[in-house]
């Protein structure tokens, strides 16, 4: 079940890259608006950046539950 779901997500993700080339542009203000399927890159990079930031935060601020007691 989970494996099928993962395959579907993967295939759809690849398909949307190609569809993105024909979808047109909503905005044209900054350079990234002019790159086709840029949102896919945002999705990947964004996730990696968030993992990185949350790991750093965890290193600094993650404590035991009874920290304040």
């Amino acid at each position: 079940m989970m494996k099928t779901l993962k395959i579907i997500v993967g295939v759809m993700a690849i398909v949307t890259i190609f569809v993105g080339f024909f979808a047109g542009r909503e905005h044209d203000s900054f350079f990234w608006h002019r790159i086709p399927s840029m949102e896919a890159v945002f999705g990947i990079l964004g996730t990696l950046i968030l993992i990185f930031l949350s790991r750093i935060l965890a290193l600094i601020a993650f404590k035991k539950e009874n920290f304040y007691d």
């Binding site: 993962k6 997500v9 993967g10 759809m12 993700a13 949307t16 890259i17 569809v19 993105g20 979808a23 909503e26 399927s37 840029m38 949102e39 896919a40 890159v41 945002f42 999705g43 990947i44 964004g46 996730t47 990696l48 993992i51 949350s54 790991r55 993650f62 404590k63 035991k64 539950e65 920290f67 304040y68």
Partner: peptide, 27 residues
């Protein structure tokens, strides 16, 4: 399409590094 791309590719990375999102006891 942009929103679907964003979610699907974020989802792909989530599946690949799921361990990074697993919850832990703590504060």
């Amino acid at each position: 399409i942009g929103t679907i791309q964003l979610f699907l590719w974020a989802g792909v990375v989530f599946i690949m590094v799921q361990g990074a999102f697993s919850p832990h006891e703590g504060l």
